[in-house]
Design a protein around this nucleic acid. Structure first.
Lengths: 348, 348
DNA sequence: ATGAAAGCGCTAACAA
DNA sequence: TTGTTAGCGCTTTCAT
C-alpha cells in the first residue's frame, strides 16, 4: 500500500487536516508546521490518492474528447491540441472514439463513462437534434464539429458557410465552371456537410453558374476511399466536372487519386480543393489547396469553455464560437489559371 | 447527488452487499431478490461510482498508452486497435502523448499519472536503457516499438530484422544496386532504427552489394518533412541512389515528394519502399510499397500482456512478442522491373 | 492555526 | 442466500 495522508500526519506529528492543507492550500498553515509536513512528504514520497480525492470532491479531473475516428488526421491534430490545453489546465483528457457509429455517439453523449469524467467534448456526426435535446446526462458538454443542432450547448466550429464560399470563389476565379461537391450526406437538416453544401450552392448562384444536381455526390464516410468512389461516379457523367470542392482533405485526396487513375491531371484538367489542412496535403502529389481551420484554437476553445462550465465560472448562456480559417493555395488549385500541361513545378 | 448503492438497497429492501453482488456477481443471489434489486436499479437509474469502487479495490480500470505522436497515422491506427482491445476487456484506455520528447517519456515511464492508471503501454523513442532500467514506478508496463532495451518488461514488436531484409530483397530483386536508407538515428545501441538498419546492411552483404555510408541518411524525426529533407540530401550525391528503403511510410512519402520536386520519377527512376502500411500509402501517387505489420495484433497483444500483469495472471518472465508482417507491393516499387531505366544523374 | 471526526460510495471479511 | 460492518484515503465541517 502506498503512502497515505495518515502516514504523513503521523510522521509529522500533526493532524490529517493539516497535511491536507499543506498539500492543497485551502487554509493557512504555520510556517514551522508546513516545513515539518513538507519534510515528511518528501521523505516518505507521498502522492495523493486520486480516487479518494475524487470520491470526496465529486470530480475526477478527467474530461473526454469523443471523436468519430482517429484515422482521420484532422481529428488526430485536433485531439493533440485539446490534450495540450487540458494538460495545461491540470486536467487529463480521455480520448473516446465513436467509430462514426450513431449508437456509440448516443452512448457517449448520454453518459457512458459519466462516472469517470467531469465533462465531455463531443464531435458527433450521426446524432440528430432530438438525440442531443433528449440527453439525460448532467455532465457538462461542449459540441465541436460541423453538424448543427441548435441545442443548448456551447459549440465550437469554424464559419463553414464563409469557408465554403471562399473555397468556391477561388475555384470560380480560376475560370472553373462545372464544379462538383463530394461529401454530401443524406440527413437533411443537420448533416455535417449542410453548411458547406449551402456555401457551395450560394457561391454558384452568386457567380451566376447553374446548379447541376449531378455534380453533388453523397458519400457514406469521410475517408480517402469515399472521395475516390465519389470521383469515379462523377467521371461517368457525360459532362464531367472541371473542378472539385471536397467536404474535407481526405475526400479531396481520394478524388485526386481517382482522377489520376483515370488519366486526368490535377490541376490541369481538374482543380481540387479540400478543407482541413492536414499535413498529408502539404506533401501529396500534387500538394493540396485547402481551407485551413485553426485547429489549435478549436481544441483550446472547446477545452476552455468546458472547464468554465465544470468549474462553475460565469459563462453566460450556451453560445457558438467560430475560430478563424484561411485559404491555403497549393498545387491542386493554384492561383494562376492552369495554362497547359506542365507539371513538376514545386512550391512548398 | 447521484443514486448510490444505499438508495437501491433501501428501495429494494435488501442490504448494500446484496446490491453489490447483483451488480458485480461475486456471490450468488436469489432469483427473487435479484429481480427486485434489478427493478430498483432500473427505476432509479443507478450507475456505480467508479471513484468509490476504485478507492476500495485499489484499481482504476484505466490503462495508458503513451505514444510519441498522434499525427503519425501509424500510431493513430495502433491506438485505435489498443482502444478496441482495452474496451473489450472492460478497461478504459488513456492516450498519453510524449511529443517525441525525452523528458516527457521519462515522466510517463516514471509514474506520471500512476495514481490514475493501472498499467502503461509505452512506445518510447528517446529513452535509454538506463532510463528504463532505473524506473522506480511499480506500475506494470509493457513496451511497444522498435527501440530495444533488453529490459525486464514484456515487449511487443515485429521482427524488424526480418522485415527489413524482406524489403531489401524486394528492391534487390528489382535490379536496384544503389539503395539508400533514410531514417537512421544517432544513438548507437537502442535507436528505433537499429534493427532496420542492420537488416539493410545484412541484405546488401547477402547480395554482394557494397555498403556506401553516403547512402545512409540520419533524420531527427520520423515525418514527411524528414523524409523529404533526407532525400534532398541524397540527391546532391555524385551518384544518387536508384532505390530508397525508408524507416517508415511517412519518411518514404516525403522522399517521394522530394524526388518529384527534383523531376525524378517513382518507380521508373527510383524505387521506394516504406514500413507501416498507413492508409495514406494506398492512395498516394504513386501508391506506396511497404511492409505491413499487423497493427491490430500489436495493439491487442500489448493490452493483453499488460492486463495479464495487472490482474496477476501467471505470465512467466518478461518476454518479446513478434506479431507478423507482410510485404505489400504497390506502385512505388512494383514487382516487375521498370523498363526504361533512365536513372541517370541528368537533373541535378 | 490546528485537531477531531464524519462521511463520500463502494467491496469484502465475517456472521447468521 | 443474505446482512452487518469496517474501512479504502481524502476533504471538510465544527471545535478548540
Amino acid at each position: 500500500m502506498a503512502v497515505s495522508l495518515k502516514d504523513i500526519a503521523k510522521r509529522a506529528g500533526v493532524s490529517q487536516a493539516t497535511v491536507s492543507n499543506v498539500v492543497n492550500g485551502y487554509r493557512p498553515v504555520g510556517e514551522a508546521t508546513r516545513a515539518r509536513v513538507q519534510e515528511a512528504i518528501d521523505e516518505l514520497g507521498y502522492t495523493p490518492n486520486l480516487s479518494a480525492r475524487h470520491l470526496r470532491r465529486g470530480r475526477t479531473g478527467i474530461i473526454a474528447l469523443a471523436i468519430p475516428e482517429l484515422n482521420n488526421p484532422y481529428f488526430a491534430e485536433l485531439a493533440a491540441a485539446a490534450i495540450r490545453a487540458a494538460t495545461e489546465r491540470g486536467y487529463t483528457l480521455l480520448l473516446d472514439y465513436t467509430d462514426g457509429d450513431r449508437d456509440k455517439e448516443l452512448l457517449v453523449a448520454d453518459g457512458f463513462r459519466a462516472q469517470i469524467i467531469d465533462g465531455l467534448i463531443l464531435s458527433a456526426v450521426h446524432l440528430t437534434r432530438d438525440d442531443i435535446a433528449g440527453r439525460t446526462s448532467e455532465t457538462p458538454m461542449v459540441l465541436v464539429g460541423e453538424a448543427i443542432y441548435h441545442a443548448p450547448y456551447d459549440h465550437v466550429v469554424i464559419d463553414n458557410l464563409a469557408a465554403s464560399r471562399e473555397a468556391m470563389r477561388h475555384l470560380i476565379a480560376l475560370g472553373r465552371r462545372r464544379i462538383a461537391f463530394i461529401g454530401a450526406h443524406i440527413e437533411a437538416d443537420r448533416a455535417p456537410s449542410l453548411l458547406r453544401l449551402r456555401g457551395y450552392t450560394e457561391a454558384l448562384a452568386a457567380a451566376g453558374l447553374p446548379f447541376d444536381p449531378d455534380l453533388t455526390v453523397t458519400t457514406s464516410g469521410f475517408g480517402r476511399g469515399d472521395g475516390a468512389a465519389g470521383m469515379r461516379a462523377l467521371l461517368t457523367l457525360a459532362q464531367p466536372p472541371d473542378a472539385v470542392f471536397a467536404f474535407n482533405d481526405l475526400i479531396a485526396l481520394g478524388a485526386i487519386r481517382a482522377l489520376h487513375d483515370h488519366g486526368l491531371r490535377v490541376p490541369d484538367d481538374v482543380s481540387v480543393i479540400g478543407i482541413d489542412d492536414v499535413e498529408e496535403g502539404r506533401f501529396s502529389i500534387p500538394t493540396l489547396t485547402t481551407i485551413s481551420p485553426d485547429k489549435e484554437m478549436i481544441g483550446r476553445l472547446a477545452v476552455e469553455k468546458l472547464l468554465d462550465r465544470i468549474e462553475g465560472r460565469p459563462a453566460g448562456p450556451p453560445a457558438a464560437f467560430q475560430p478563424p480559417f484561411r485559404l491555403v493555395v497549393r498545387e491542386s488549385a493554384p492561383s494562376t489559371v492552369p495554362r497547359q500541361a506542365s507539371s513538376s513545378s514545386s512550391s512548398s
